[in-house]
Nucleic acid binder design. Structure first.
Lengths: 245, 245
DNA sequence: ACCTTACGACAACACCGTTGACCTGTTAAA
DNA sequence: TTTAACAGGTCAACGGTGTTGTCGTAAGGT
């Protein structure tokens, strides 16, 4: 097969497709995103994408080695869009809070894409930039390297994981989503106190809370734990090894 | 087609399959679980399952309306198994840590089921039992109702979200998974210090840390933040009434 | 002994990702 | 200006997937 995908430098990209479209990596990615937004994540297939582009499905293999490559390109595009919106202030906790909420919001804005890109490491430009930025915020705040990486990892994965989780909930068929919401009212809130005392005792809070995303709460918990850890570290640096034989 | 799936009450389940197996909902679910465990997540397809059972694939549609239904049945079975493994000790933080890790491990053992079930509220017996149990742990620890629900929600969603995230990573085709691992070594660890100082400065930690799941770390952060919150609450309760043991 | 019907088997459908072969127009070099 | 190389399009085919309409048959209930 020699090599199907030609490195971008050697591209000449001349002949338009049979329906007159001139393909390019960018056009393919953006069309894929549009397709996902309009018809859901499972509407994205090589064949459908080809049809949407007015090209033969096999043409896409001139640009991506396989469908997975395409997914990574889509994921990276989303990271870039989110990062471009973010404006850091210098307060590490506030900045990470803001970025986390923006990533989460970005995922919710593209529910279908978020679900399939959440678990991938792309190693592409935008992702690298994001890693560098977040690590910088943590190290500048004073976290030692090992701790910074540990917290970075938990922070990013939590944002991705909740993004995917809440996206999946949003992407459910409308009927299913309403059914879920009513389960808390109709089933949980009506359990008798003698068999389920804790549910019955907190029913009011459950109905109010379970309809919303818990990401903001989880994010705050994570950041406050990190802040506590940072204070510990600073204290130890100032008063090195108090009493230890 | 009238209705393909017959309600369990009306089942007669007599004729064995051509290869002599007598099908049942339980047999199908357990065989599916075995198949996942033995040959990986992508080994589970209706056709393969049929082959493993010695039955025609279409026969399975007498028991489940579609493949999703089967996944949910598997997921429900998993909730039950996880709860049955858990042995609370009375130390709320340790108990929630243990349960969280067990839920996460359960999800990883059955990636496809975890992905599908993570965002759904079933309102079924096992789920209700889990809600009641976790809320009980938090209230007994001393969290007021509103706080208990807030933390319960973040805790459960975190377990589900990370379970789904890490499951999705595991469910990737083998080649893609290995590619991901090597990205940290081959791409990130080789970025020059002048353009990416923070990545270069922590490369050693990144390579070591990013290959693992960050759920244990994220769980610990959440629980320690909750513990800090609880101390605050207790302190506030004790101050208005100074002498109180 | 007879209906009824649960349920297994079969064949077919529409889709999927992917590949090898072929062809064609552009482009860089001679 | 001619020409050879080749990027990049199309086509056909392979083996996989979930799902359904149809039919036959054996096991119940009466």
């Amino acid at each position: 097969m020699s090599e199907r995908v030609v490195p971008p430098a050697d591209r000449r990209r001349r002949r338009p497709t049979k329906q007159g479209v001139v393909l390019s990596e960018e056009l393919i990615v953006s069309t894929a995103l549009r397709l996902i937004e309009e018809h859901g994540a499972d509407a994205l297939s090589v064949r459908r994408l080809g049809r949407a582009l007015g090209a033969d499905p096999s043409s896409l293999y001139r640009y991506f080695r396989h469908a997975d490559d395409l997914m990574l390109a889509i994921a990276d595009e989303l990271i870039g869009r989110t990062l471009r919106l973010w404006r850091p202030t210098g307060d590490w906790q506030e900045d990470l809070r803001d970025l986390g909420l923006k990533m989460h919001a970005g995922a919710l804005a593209h529910p279908r894409a978020a679900v399939l890109s959440s678990c991938r490491v792309t190693g592409r430009a935008h992702e690298i930039q994001a890693v560098e930025t977040i690590l910088g915020v943590l190290r500048d705040a004073g976290f030692p390297d090992g701790e910074a990486v540990r917290i970075y990892h938990a922070y990013v994965d939590q944002a991705l994981a909740f993004g995917a989780l809440d996206s999946a909930a949003i992407a459910l068929p409308r009927a299913a989503r309403e059914a879920e919401a009513s389960v808390w009212r109709a089933t949980y809130a009506r359990l008798p106190a003698d068999t389920h005392p804790h549910i019955a005792g907190t029913a009011r809070h459950l109905v109010a809370d379970m309809g919303r995303s818990s990401y903001p709460a989880a994010l705050d918990l994570l950041l406050s734990a990190a802040a506590a850890r940072l204070q510990e570290i600073r204290a130890r640096q100032e008063r090195p090894v108090p009493d230890r034989i």
